[in-house]
Design a binder for these strands. Structure first.
Lengths: 131, 131
DNA sequence: CTTAGTGCACTAGGCGCCTAGTGCACTATT
DNA sequence: AATAGTGCACTAGGCGCCTAGTGCACTAAG
């Protein structure tokens, strides 16, 4: 697995975001078992304590559930999955639009840039199945 | 001035981003004098050394120019201003689109969300003068 | 020359993130 | 009972960011 972490942000937060994304996209489903703290630590080439911290935080967030001696599992009922997904999207869009407006772009200009980027991506093998 | 800093990221980086944004949007123009390190520190309620670090970094980036004993000035010739602006937008759009795709959204869905957000913002007193 | 404003270098310490290592409690399997 | 896998707590240390404070060199204005 890839180990790319943004050097300027806490790793444990990035681990949480990654797992939340996997839950939101259905890669991880309710009831699924997460890798053990030790395993994920090896996989991400990170210290076990860092993974431990990420898992603990997610437990407090109600995203996962821990069974001592057995492992950590995706707790999310349907509603929570969708809520998580919704929250992530809202935050993303919110921050993007705000930042673009702060740079002086109006609605049209923002949409234009997004369309352009999407067109580029579609061209470069970044083919996405249309569902 | 407001002092809101993202707790999870280095303050000196956020100071740099803010100033780059001001340059990109024309709030700060080539030749303009930045606040002195001490003044900005007071203004942002941050230690002078933190501002010092931000200024030093920007000097290395070629964004500003320092005249010992006089102050720090926006160095950017036209070309650099536009380049800075372009870089910031590219990065923003790139990261936004990538993140949305990682969440499983296709082009249409992404555009829809952006349009929706823009519509909201336009409605809520977030009125932007049409230049 | 004196004074004020500036950039800049330096020391010292607090705090959070991360690493490293150890040990214990619990569960499931054998 | 023994073993392996798990979550979890604890200690110790390194490092980066930030704060706090001081002093020096340079520039401009009086």
């Amino acid at each position: 697995m890839k180990v790319e972490f943004d050097q300027s942000r806490p790793i444990y937060l990035q681990i949480i975001e990654d797992i939340k994304r996997q839950i939101a996209t259905g890669v991880l489903k309710p009831g699924d078992k997460l890798p053990s703290q030790r395993d994920l630590a090896v996989q991400l080439q990170v210290n076990a304590n860092t993974v431990q911290r990420a898992y603990r935080e997610m437990e407090l967030l109600g995203i996962v559930e821990t069974l001592r001696g057995q492992g950590t599992f995706v707790r999310a009922e349907r509603s929570i999955v969708e809520e998580t997904r919704g929250d992530m999207v809202s935050t993303l869009v919110e921050e993007f639009v705000t930042a673009m407006q702060a740079l002086g772009y109006d609605a049209e200009a923002i949409l234009l840039h997004v369309r352009q980027k999407l067109a580029d991506t579609a061209g470069n093998g970044g083919e996405r199945n249309g569902k």
